[in-house]
Amino acid sequence: MHIQLLIPGLLWPTATLLGPASGLTLDGLAGLLGRGSRSVLAFEPYDRQLARLFGLEGGPLPLAALRRSGEPDAPPPAEGDHWLCADPVNLSFAREHLLLQSFDDSQLDAEEAAELVAALNEVFTDLGQFEACTPTRWYLRLAQASKATLYPLDDVVGRPVKHFLPEGEDARLWQRTMNEAQIVLHNHPRSRAREASGLRAVNSIWLWGAGALEHAPQAPAALVQATDPLSVGLARNCGLPVAMPDVSAALRQDTLVVLDGLRLPAQALDLDAWRTGLEALERDWFAPLATALKRGRIDSLHITAPGDRATLLVANQRSERWKFWRKPYAFDDLLKSLAPAPLPLPEATPPPPPHEAR
């Protein structure tokens, strides 16, 4: 039996004075880290790593169409349709940079999302049709295919927007569209009401995910366990069953498990939520899987943890259980080893000689 865990957000993105996982009891994870083989690869976007597990790589990936096909209550996209993700975001200035922040479902409701999408549809009738599958996952069904290079939202959150503007043949169209959408959303009564209440306004959309699906995804396992719509969409497009993440079910057959509960807390630098989620992963996944490995119930367990600077790979094999000299490796120690080096302090200017002092 083979289990693959994909855990975006497991690597805390910044250095802290105290280790981000300090004080947490993570014996199961420590055992998997210490007794398995570990490697750290260069940064690669999470969505590309997920797509590769389904046999898709190279060129623009149709992430919008794939994510749209994984939405729970939406009809599947028609063959030949072209889609963009058009997710609601907040833009704000921090010093000289315009930074982007996303929303989670607890921060927007379906009614305000519907009103904001209706306002966009009144203005952009020539581009296609906007729709909101959830309060925070919006789409644009295009009247014609896009020829722009558009950056995924996860790559842009918390970063200066100027580095991720649309590129390519019709880049100006989409730059203009996002600028005009900012005006529409900024002036909307819903946005004004949010600002008056001290909440972050939905004052822009982020367009991404263009591309055509040239090859059908390939099944990475007998079962996919996931809740995020991109993973669900990939599984549906290769005819795989999809289930909620559950360790007992994963131990019955070859399974790909996508656990993305740490992704948003890591992006938002919400350390309390991240630590709470990490404790839940230890209880529900790491500890049970470490026990199953010791008992020989798993042939192999692979953990892939895409981060914003690097990707951690951990591989545990049943055949290596007897290597008793491999000791647990504390997760907080691992995070410290991956943290960026502190910036060097400027050298102090030596005081002038006594005869030059004034």
Rank of each mutant, 00 (worst) to 15 (best):
P340I: 05
E320A: 15
L301Q: 09
A119V: 05
Q267F: 02
S37W: 12
T149F: 11
L173E: 02
A310V: 06
E180K: 08
H82F: 05
P160C: 08
T25Q: 11
S39C: 01
N316P: 01
T276A: 14
D254G: 02
S69P: 01
H97M: 04
A171S: 09
L6C: 13
Y139E: 00
A86W: 15
L56Y: 09
P8D: 05
P217H: 06
P217R: 01
L269I: 03
F324L: 12
R194S: 10
A222I: 00
L293N: 12
T349S: 07
T304P: 00
L334I: 12
L18S: 14
R283S: 11
A94E: 04
P13I: 03
L338I: 08
L142S: 02
L32Y: 14
L18R: 15
W138P: 00
H163C: 01
P166V: 08
A65Y: 06
E214L: 12
G28E: 10
P77R: 07
S248E: 10
V247W: 05
R252L: 04
L91Y: 08
H355R: 14
D270G: 09
G36K: 15
R35H: 08
P13S: 04
K162S: 08
L338S: 05
P75A: 02
P306F: 11
Y139A: 00
H2A: 06
H186K: 01
L61N: 07
P189K: 11
C85L: 14
A268N: 09
D155I: 06
D47Y: 10
I298Q: 11
S146D: 10
W274C: 11
A94S: 06
A210W: 07
A119P: 06
A292T: 07
V117W: 14
A292R: 08
G9T: 08
L301N: 11
